[in-house]
Nucleic acid binder design. Structure first.
Length: 593
RNA sequence: GGUCCGGUAGCUCAGCUGGAUAGAGCAACAGCCUUCUAAGCUGUGGGUCUCGGGUUCGAAUCCCGACCGGAUCACCA
């Protein structure tokens, strides 16, 4: 039983005994005692005032007194300030808690709930390399998967690769026209970057054609529709769907280049997938579902041959499902992908990690799946996160205003390497290889924490002019705290005793134990809210408190053996929880730094 | 225009299922390394929690209304 559960129970009994009144658990408000008052936990008694018919101050005192008499020694002291009853929990209770935490190798992990959650994230288009926006998506997706797993879900991480469609045709066309057979090998470029360059090239040439047409008197809209390049790209897409062997071969070749590039980027980011779907394999499934819906009257066909869903009854618009030329759109393939996934896995919850700009899309998808008779349609979760913005606005691939994922990771690791050069003392005797590994962990840790610490729902700002910090509320700060502990544990020689006999705790020791006790609740909250940021905040608080403890109290040089043992045990478990928490964020911990 | 999201210190962000005097980091300033890693610790200054109403013992937090910013409402993905 947690301390909160203990006190809640006691509080209910107290109110019953003292005022002969029944209170429900929601009325029992507990919070951490503010540092300016003495105590660990505070019971807020305002909510009892009505039933007790007394002033809050009096209630607090009376309950405090009752706790002292009936609390079985759990509460060692109390003080009442207005309606706040501040409780000191006995030191022996805290020491016991620490010992229990130490015994639990999976501390923080919730019981297996025997249900399967599929988490889709990343979902790249194969026409350009990944940028900072994708980085946020990948880190959030991976972290959410870890967090839900810790909350007892069986998690399947999945990726839907948008490998077909007009966008990839644009890159292909530009490569055919201007590429002179360039390959990743011949150019020395990473495959995804090479393809991205042609995507940008297409846009450039296309814009030229548009302005040419406009100078000939066309209005912008028809110029965009009639430019030869876009017509050619559309023709290419039709040929692709018609299985034209030449187009298919080119498509397969260029996609392979991109995948090789993505794999490299994913590997560096430390994200992975259990099952990858390709749009080219799912869109036909989607088409046939749409045909079925058409046949049973869910959808309708317009005169030009295009197929639509009427969603006006749901308060939405009409939605295109198949173009007049018969080709499919984004929505079509998402229907097909969903169907295949539910064939492949016994999914209890389907989560899509996709930016908030697509909220409308998922609202529609949910309704369409439901109409097509898929029981999971209504239940799907769109984990909608905010955009990454630059100081001058959104990133736009076609305009080249993007922060490239590979470049950014390079830069972070370089910066970490640069900073570590000053650490000649602590990193002495470390091989070049180990030093590089530390720089990789620290640089990536800084990047990941920087992104994950902000509330996922909110837009976040990234200023490329300012480098990401390595001091303060950062990943490296937490890694550093961990490395310090490892250093102490190495020097301690024998491993910490698992049980200690301590009469009185120092304030900073107690604070740390209390913080460790919160971890399981934090994991649950992060899961319920789909928020890695909750984990970040917790890890930061824990690291701060440890550093303060470390500064004030000596561990290895403590003469009292029991105190030394307690502090070692405490340090060991702080490290354990820090590693676990950071693991939920996909951040690795260096043994030294 | 409809719908959704956001607005907290100079900057980046916590806090939001209502609780005590609103917190961190960065930046600025002042201290702390012959003792377990100074990527650390301690302190100072910095606020009309966008504004106005309402609910209540109590509102940054909940409700309503303004204002500002963003997203979305495609035969794009």
């Amino acid at each position: 039983m947690t301390i909160e559960q203990h006190i809640t129970k006691l509080a209910k009994s107290a109110v019953q005994a003292l005022y002969n009144a029944e209170v429900d658990e929601a009325q029992v408000v507990l919070q951490k005692t503010r540092p300016e008052f003495e105590g660990n936990i505070t019971l807020v008694v305002f909510s009892f005032a009505k039933q007790a018919r007394k002033a809050p101050q009096v209630i607090a005192s009376e309950i405090g007194e009752w706790f002292m008499a009936n609390g079985n020694g759990l509460i060692s002291k109390y003080n009442a300030v207005q309606g706040f009853l501040n409780l000191c929990i006995s030191d022996s209770f805290w020491v016991e808690q620490l010992e229990q935490i130490d015994q639990d190798a999976d501390y923080g992990r919730q019981a297996d709930r025997n249900q399967l959650m599929m988490v889709e994230y990343s979902s790249p288009n194969t026409n350009k390399p990944l940028h900072l926006g994708h980085v946020r998506n990948n880190l959030l997706g991976y972290s959410i998967a870890q967090i839900q797993e810790a909350n007892g879900w069986k998690v399947v991480k999945t990726n839907i690769v948008n490998d077909r469609g007009i966008h990839i045709c644009k890159s292909m066309l530009a490569w055919l026209k201007y590429g002179n057979g360039e390959t990743p090998e011949s150019s020395g470029k990473k495959g995804d970057h090479l393809i991205g360059d042609y995507y940008v090239r297409f846009d450039k040439e296309y814009k030229k054609q548009i302005s040419e047409l406009m100078s000939q008197g066309k209005d912008e809209e028809s110029a965009k529709k009639e430019a030869p390049l876009i017509l050619e790209a559309q023709e290419m897409l039709r040929k692709w769907e018609a299985n034209d062997p030449e187009i298919r071969a080119l498509w397969a070749k260029m996609n392979e280049w991109v995948y090789a590039g993505f794999d490299e980027t994913y590997r560096r980011m430390g994200v992975s997938f259990d099952k990858i779907y390709y749009e080219s394999n799912t869109y036909l499934e989607g088409k046939s579902e749409v045909e079925k819906g058409l046949a049973n009257g869910q959808f309708y066909r317009r005169e030009d041959g295009s197929v639509w869903a009427d969603l006006t009854k749901d308060g939405l618009d009409e939605k295109l499902l198949l173009r007049s030329d018969g080709t499919s759109v984004y929505m079509t393939q998402d229907i097909g992908t969903a169907k295949l996934r539910f064939q492949d896995y016994p999914i209890d919850k389907m989560v899509y990690v996709v930016g908030n700009e697509q909220e409308y899309h998922f609202k529609v998808l949910s309704i369409l799946l439901d109409r097509l008779g898929f029981p999971f349609g209504k239940e799907l979760v769109h984990f909608s996160y905010g955009m990454v913005e630059l100081p001058n606005g959104k990133m736009k691939s076609r305009e080249g205003t993007v922060v490239d994922a590979d470049d950014l990771m390079d830069k972070m690791v370089e910066d970490a390497k640069e900073i570590s050069k000053d650490k000649v003392n602590t990193l002495q005797g470390v091989t070049e290889e180990e030093a590089n590994e530390i720089a990789r962990k620290v640089g990536m840790g800084a990047l990941k924490y920087f992104i994950l610490k902000v509330d996922p729902r909110k837009n976040m700002l990234f200023n490329p002019e300012e480098s990401i910090d390595f001091n303060g509320n950062t990943g490296p700060f937490i890694q550093y705290t961990f490395a310090r502990i490892q250093s102490v544990l190495r020097k301690a020689e024998s491993s910490p005793a698992s049980s200690v006999s301590i009469k009185q705790l120092e304030e900073k020791e107690l604070t740390l134990i209390q913080r460790l006790c919160e971890y399981p609740v934090v994991v649950r909250t992060a899961g319920d809210n789909f928020s890695p940021a909750v984990i970040c905040n917790y890890a930061y608080d824990l690291a701060c408190e440890f550093n303060s403890f470390y500064h004030d109290l000596s561990i290895l040089n403590e003469k009292d053996e029991q105190k030394r043992a307690l502090r070692l045990l405490l340090a060991k478990n702080v490290a354990k929880v820090l590693r676990s928490a950071m693991g939920l964020l996909g951040i690795e911990m260096p043994e030294r730094m």
